[in-house]
């Protein structure tokens, strides 16, 4: 039983990271029906901002987190303005290819500065409590709680504020909303800022939990978060959160109870089966094409 509880805790930690990154994919898709494949690499840049802030500026945890989130948000908005906005009327495929290009650019740009893996210093004094045989580290608690707080905050912004209402309106019908006087470009920028800063928060927490970072770290995690977003129903914010926790749980529990070599194979087979029965994801709804 303690073994099971320990693995559940591991799954919650991994799941909350996936969920935070998945939110970035889902928000951009919801508003632009475009998949921002550079998001995994923005997550990596977030980890590097954390590394720079912690190593060279010697900042404590909270300023480091905020700096990383702000820096990546700025980067995300700039990328949207420079690379995606001119393609808003172009075919979707062009925008997606551009996003892949932006991702490669970010990886190689970081590679120029740091071809070697870097070590992120400890920002939070790590304590491990053993409660009923289950080892709980303070880092685990912080990651899970912070992820939950950020997700609740996002949910409140989207459901309770004017900006959130505008976001939902744009995702509902992009052509009518500007006629109602909604500043579409501003709302899109805000969406990018929020989505990418959540990715940066995930990057910061990830680099504290797994303190060796390299320019390619965003690829695998990015793909897995993207899968989480699709499983939860892409475009749906609560779906992305659920998807992240599901993927984390499946990965950890498969490795926990089957030989670990089968982990990815079984995990992704399960997700495929899930998509066969719910092709739009868990919370996604089929969108009828409007003519």
């Amino acid at each position: 039983m303690t073994y099971f509880l320990q693995q559940v805790l591991n799954a919650l930690q991994l799941g909350s990271i996936y969920a935070l990154i998945a939110l970035g994919y889902t928000m951009v898709y919801g508003i632009l029906t475009m998949i921002n494949f550079a998001h995994g690499d923005l997550f990596m840049v977030g980890a590097f901002f954390c590394f720079i802030a912690a190593t060279f500026l010697k900042l404590p945890f909270v300023p480091t987190l905020l700096l990383s989130m702000a820096g990546v948000a700025l980067l995300g908005v700039t990328i949207e303005r420079v690379a995606y906005k001119p393609l808003r009327q172009a075919p979707r495929v062009s925008a997606i290819i551009t996003a892949l290009g932006v991702g490669l650019f970010l990886e190689n740009f970081t590679l120029v500065f740091s071809p070697y893996p870097q070590h992120v210093p400890t920002l939070i004094e790590n304590k491990t409590w053993i409660i009923g045989g289950v080892a709980i580290s303070s880092l685990q608690v912080i990651i899970i709680l912070l992820a939950l707080v950020l997700m609740i905050l996002l949910d409140l912004i989207v459901r309770r504020t004017m900006v959130g209402m505008a976001m939902r309106a744009i995702s509902w019908d992009k052509s009518i909303v500007p006629l109602m006087g909604v500043p579409v470009n501003l709302i899109i920028s805000i969406t990018f800022a929020i989505g990418t800063s959540l990715g940066a928060a995930a990057g910061t927490m990830y680099s504290l939990a797994f303190p060796v970072i390299d320019p390619y770290m965003g690829i695998l995690v990015g793909w897995k978060a993207f899968i989480s977003a699709v499983v939860g129903g892409i475009g749906n914010i609560r779906g992305a959160m659920i998807g992240g926790f599901i993927l984390g749980a499946v990965e950890i529990l498969v490795a926990a109870f089957l030989p670990s070599t089968y982990r990815d194979f079984v995990a992704f087979a399960l997700l495929l089966v899930l998509l066969i029965f719910r092709p739009y994801g868990i919370l996604g709804k089929p969108r009828p094409q409007k003519v």
């Binding site: 591991n10 939990a209 797994f210 695998l220 990965e251 490795a255």
Partner: peptide, 16 residues
């Protein structure tokens, strides 16, 4: 226990 190149979370295997 095994993992694949690029993994950073080994918590499931290490718990085992």
């Amino acid at each position: 226990e095994t993992y694949t190149t690029g993994d950073k979370d080994f918590s499931a295997q290490l718990t085992k």
